[in-house]
Each structure stands twice: as C-alpha cells, then as structure tokens.
Amino acid sequence: MPTADLTLPADIGPTVERALAEDVGDGDRNAALVDEGLRASASVIVRENAILAGSPWFEQVFAALDSSVSVEWAYSDGQRIRSNTPICHVEGPVRALLTGERTALNFLQLLSGVASSTFDFVERVKGTNTQIIDTRKTLPGLRSAQRYAVRCGGGINHRFGLFDAILIKENHILAAGSIGTAVQRARETAEGLFVQVEIETLEELEQALEAGIDGVLLDNLPSHVLARAVNMADAHRRRFRRDIVIEASGDINLRNVREIADTGVDRISIGGLTKHIKATDFSMRMKTR
C-alpha cells in the first residue's frame, strides 16, 4: 500500500469554487425541478479496480453547496478499491446532491486515475531503489491536486514550479552559452536552490558534473547509456564526496520502466502520470426519502 505523504494542499477550497462556478453558473436549472425540502442518500460506486484519490475535493464540493450534506467513507485516499464496490455514502438535500454530483465525481475520477497510473509504475520498479516522480506537465489550475494524487499512488513530487528549483534545459544552455555558464548563473541568482541539468549525451554529463550540479536529468537515453551515466555519476560522487541525483526521463512506459530502473537511476520522471490520464469510472446512485 502506498505510504507517501498525503498532506493536503492549501488550495482545495478555491479549486472547488472554480469548478462549481464553471458548472453551475448563475444557478442549477436542473435541480430546481426537485422540491426544495426533499432529502436523499446516495452511494458512490467504483466500476473498476483503482487507487482512491480525491476524497477531500469530493467532500468540499458538497460542503460548498450545503453544509448539512454528510459524507462517510469506506476507504481512504491511497487505498486500493475493487470494481463494483461502494466507496462512500452521501446524505443531504436532494438539490445539493444533484448539483454537486458531476463536479464531485470529476475530481474523484481524475485524481484516482492519476493515483492508479502512478501505482502501476511504482509496482513495476518495486525491489529497486528508483522512485517514480511527476513533472510540471499538469492540467492548468490542478497542479497541487494532481501532485497529491501522485503521492496517493506511491510516487513523489518533482519541483512545484519555476520558483522552487532550477532545471537547466537545452534552450537555457543555448541562451547562456554553455552548461558551465548556466550553472554558474543559477548559483549566483538562486542561492540555495536545487540545480539540475538536462543532458542528452555523456559528453554533456561530463560537463555538468564538472560544473558541480546537484542533479542530472538523462533525457531519452537508451538503457545501456543510462548505465554508463550512472557509473560516471557514482565515480564523481565517490571522488568529490558530493551527492548527485540521477534522474531518467523521456518515452517512459510500463513496458520499459523496469529496465530503466535496473540501470541504477535514482528517479524516473513521467509526464504521462498527469497528462495522459485515464479517468477512473465512478457512479453515484441516489435513494430519496
């Protein structure tokens, strides 16, 4: 079972508010078809095996619509859920349940899909020392939610954005003139931040190691070259007693992720965790009183 840090992001409320505003607009004309005082209960059922994620967003949707809605969970985020299993029970005014149903399920299906995909990759590299991490390739406005879902699936998070770590990519190197110059400027302008360089050849790796970086991102290198890169980095670690994070990325899938992990890289970053999303199928079935 995933044991990642499931600390909740601080922007759940605003994220839910935007989602409800998008769907409800100036009023739910559909819910108005139902008597205002009517109450109901409902069960949410998962239609496929998955890892649950998104329950705080689900709850916040109904809390924002009517504080009298109650939600009782049979499972917690990060747990495996089996097909055709009820995962929670919701009770409250029918209008609130109808208005919030789609938005609440949208969060649940999206985030459980991310968690489930992450879990599959984590399972493939089990037994190695390699960690599965996400990238900045997230849905606009949902980055913190998707990063939470990655943690639910047992993965870890890369930098949040452009402000909390430095990743020197090909265009940065081209604009700066060299890897060494780019690293030097990073140290001068962002003291204390983690500095990582994306490299595509072993020659570039040598330059990055000489520049004194904190980590390297080995992009689209075949496994035999990755193994050589890991050996080079390990030798540099021993010689200078300096920790260096070795990360692989580029065209990673469930078929090749284990082979890449077996090269000894510390991390494998996969943009598909948060951009190639297969939503988990949930449904909500209501019973009126």
Rank of each mutant, 00 (worst) to 15 (best):
L98E: 02
P93L: 01
G27N: 03
S70V: 15
A74L: 13
F58N: 14
L38Y: 00
T85Y: 02
I45K: 05
D66N: 12
N84W: 07
S67R: 12
V94K: 08
D35K: 12
T103E: 02
A32Y: 11
F58D: 13
R82T: 11
A64D: 06
G37K: 11
C88R: 01
D28I: 12
L38M: 09
S67H: 11
E59H: 12
A53Q: 03
I81S: 00
D35P: 14
A50K: 06
L108Q: 05
A50S: 14
V114H: 10
S67L: 09
A53M: 05
E101S: 04
L105V: 07
L111H: 03
Q79Y: 06
L38K: 05
N84I: 02
F62K: 11
D66P: 01
G113D: 07
T99M: 12
V90G: 01
E91P: 04
T103C: 09
I45A: 04
A50M: 07
A115N: 15
W57P: 04
N49Q: 10
V90Y: 00
E36C: 05
D26G: 02
S43N: 09
L111Y: 00
V34A: 15
L65C: 04
A31I: 06
N49L: 07
N49F: 09
V34L: 15
I45F: 13
G54E: 08
E36V: 15
N84V: 06
S55Y: 11
N84M: 08
E36T: 12
G92N: 01
N84K: 09
A115G: 15
A40N: 12
A32R: 13
Q109L: 07
S83P: 06
S83G: 11
S68T: 14
D28L: 11
L97A: 08
E59P: 08
G100M: 06
A31K: 08
V94D: 01
Y75L: 09
Q60M: 08
A104V: 06
L33C: 14
I51E: 04
A42H: 06
Y75V: 07
G113L: 07
L33P: 04
D28A: 09
S83I: 02
S76P: 00
R29P: 01
E101I: 01
D28W: 09
A53S: 15
A115M: 14
A42F: 09
F58E: 13
R80E: 13
R80M: 11
A40L: 11
P56M: 00
F58G: 14
R80T: 13
L110A: 04
G78R: 03
P93W: 00
V94I: 14
S67E: 14
E72M: 12
G78D: 05
